[in-house]
Design a protein around this nucleic acid. Sequence first.
RNA 1: GCGAGAGUGGCGGAAUUGGUAGACGCGCUGGUCUUAGGAACCAGUAUCUUCGAUGUGUGGGUUCGAGUCCCUCCUCUCGCACCA
Length: 830
Amino acid sequence: MTERTNNSDRYDFKTIEEKWQKTWLVSSIDRVVQDDKKEKYYVLEMFPYPSGRIHMGHVRNYSIGDVVARYKRLKGYNVLHPMGWDAFGLPAENAAQKNNTHPAKWTYENIDYMKSQLRQLGLSYDWQRELATCDPDYYRWEQRIFVEMLQNDLVYQKVTTVNWCETCQTVLANEQVIDGECWRCDQPVEPRNMNGWFFKITDYAEELLSDLDTLKGWPEKVVTMQKNWIGKSTGLECKFAIKDSTESLSIFTTRPDTIFGVTFMSVAAEHPLIDELISGVDDEATIRTFISEIIAENKKLGPEEETEKKGIFTGRYCVNPFNGTQVPIYIANFVLAEYGTGAVMAVPAHDQRDFEFARTYDLPIKPVVIPPDTELDPATMEEASIAPGELTDSGQFTSLYSIDAQQAIIDHATEKGFGNAKTTFRLRDWGISRQRYWGAPIPMIHCDKCGAVPVPLDQLPVTLPDGNTELDNECLPLSKRPDFYETTCPQCNEPARRETDTMDTFVESSWYFARFASPQELNSPLDKSETGYWLSVDQYIGGVEHAILHLLYSRFFTKALRDLGYLTIDEPFENLLTQGMVIKDGAKMSKSKGNVVDPDELIQKYGADTVRLFSLFAAPPERDLEWNAQGVEGSSRFINRLYRYINNHLENLTGASESTYDESQDRALHRKIHQTIKKVSYDIETNFHFNTAISAVMELFNTLTSLTEESRRDRPSAQTIEEAIRTILILLFPMIPHFVSEMWEIMGLAGTPQQTNWPSFDEKAAEEELLTIVVQVNGKVRSRLDVPANTEDSELEALAIKDAQVLKFVGDKTIKKIIVVKKKLVNIVV
RNA sequence: GCGAGAGUGGCGGAAUUGGUAGACGCGCUGGUCUUAGGAACCAGUAUCUUCGAUGUGUGGGUUCGAGUCCCUCCUCUCGCACCA
């Protein structure tokens, strides 16, 4: 700021914003309680990880949420708008190691600072509901839910393969393995079989899928992503007997109609019957080497790459139960052990992967489904034919069409007892074990005699051990903390060992929205009366990056909590808004690109209201927002213009009630006021398009300034000017609450903006009585007519054909047709 | 490769059902005030060969009329990616 700037014509945002933030804090203005007489509205933004400071993505996300909250309050709803902290996670452990501090200390310091940042933005949260997931008073309930889920068969443990980093002595999540190496120390990760705990999300697969159709308020895109993730497919499960063995290979196929085209069998390298198949065959050693190779390759490769189809013949055969044909069994690198049965019937004529494999290893190709008007010649085919068609060479099913054949074949297999209809999901159970310190301990005790025993409910929470000064590192994994794991079995009292894994942090975020209804409840995770009133979340707002995991887990938890008797809803989030990213110079903000904008600096320079206004104005919420420093200036300029206008007109406005409405002078402004209320209400109500809402208010203000220029003689009355300003203020209140509160006070308006109702508009006042009708000749605009709104069509026609400009273009051509569109245009076709 | 979405001035973006393309803001140009302007205010700002013509990624179609509906192709973004 230079000395030359005249301070009096710029509003002092710093003083004003601090003043109102303090006022709101002292009066607990945003506190809400259950009130059965009022209709509730629950708006929630995805809570942040307390990484240290907020970024522009948060600013945008929370500005949007705050406008929704404030708008709904003005509309008379009892609005729940809480905020909390997703406070467990690996960064705290890393920071702790680096700075030789405790994760809890680091986390709570971050929370303090970020909370002060959110306060500075003027966000209207009910801070009395604040929660941090690392607080034992939060995760004790999570542990209780875990135990109850265990008792209801929704939790189990199994040994499974995980990514292990030897250097870090920990399991890594899939996202933390980059090109087969640890993201932190570049040590190649190794697969390791470990025991882990799982939530049975697959029990809800069908419901999670079908209820997606009830989520009318969700973006289609997110619904589709979840559908794909759940990945339901239906088909036939069928047993192929292994020759010279009592075992059989089970396969799953979605194309039972192609079963007569099976020419070989492919099994995964990890298939449980591998030993049975290859023990004692001639090439056993070679095959075993091959198996190790492809397992290693598959582990190493990222999920992106698609490798060449490779396989090896086991020397064994199995029998197609439909026609008794013997087909060779191959081990193939493209068969997934985890999906279906880990074995695939290979139909090269009708499956592209099998086709490629067959061509590589010169295996027979046998077409059995012929699409209409097609000939399939195994010798010349260049790709598999996947279209449905008429069956050929398929025994009793020959000449049936695909769809009918599928059912008939499933029925046949069921009848004969070697197969059945089967539904398969891509969705897997949710492994929640993490071998870390900074997470919620899994409340189990392992006893040699009694097995895995849940910690009795009255002994919860199982808290994390505090910093131990004797240890040089305070956040060692729990498995290295005897002070933590040494215990006795609750059943037999013998020495036993606590489970040392902590829960995936996604568990905490799967139910926090429900806890917000009764965050201080001491006797239960959730208060039935409170959740019954507040849930579900009416509007959830956050980044699309959580489209699958967080949102799917939350949906699962909601259903599980319902079945445990805690909730009565089926779905947690009625409406979902996935806001776009904040980008700069066309790229996502990142330190490496050096295009990061710091919210603190912006607030210092322009104030919170300007930052909020720009982030709402620059783009509709669902789109990416290009951050533009000059655009921020523009938003600041607008608020300052408004400020100066109000200050300059203060004297006239105070006596506003004495002036009288004069139709001829006030009509234009009065009309614009009501048009604006209508437009802004519509924009917010339909799709939260604040950008167009703000531009409508700007238009109203532009109209106001031009109608009240000093030089004009027909200026509107003080009464209407006051109405215009009051309207502008209340319409902007959800977006720039500090500024509006200050202006409200300066103008001496009644009460506070919070106590005001959202203005309703007078449809009649919003109507134009003079319309501009476009006159087209052959669809091209040639002239415009200003006519009273009630002009009859016939009169419009008459006026149009007499118009000088029109006549020029019509000339002596004959008029074929005249189209009149009410209130819009007249088109003369010649 | 499959699926979804999107392509509009120099820029961000407007345009409820097909009916004045470019609202609003930024930037830019000129002006006023001024010792000064990176302040404020005023005027202008799609393009061109400017009584007119052309313009919403390309090429077609439907229609009196298309940014909007249908088909072709191109580009970009996102998601999925051996799921049998």
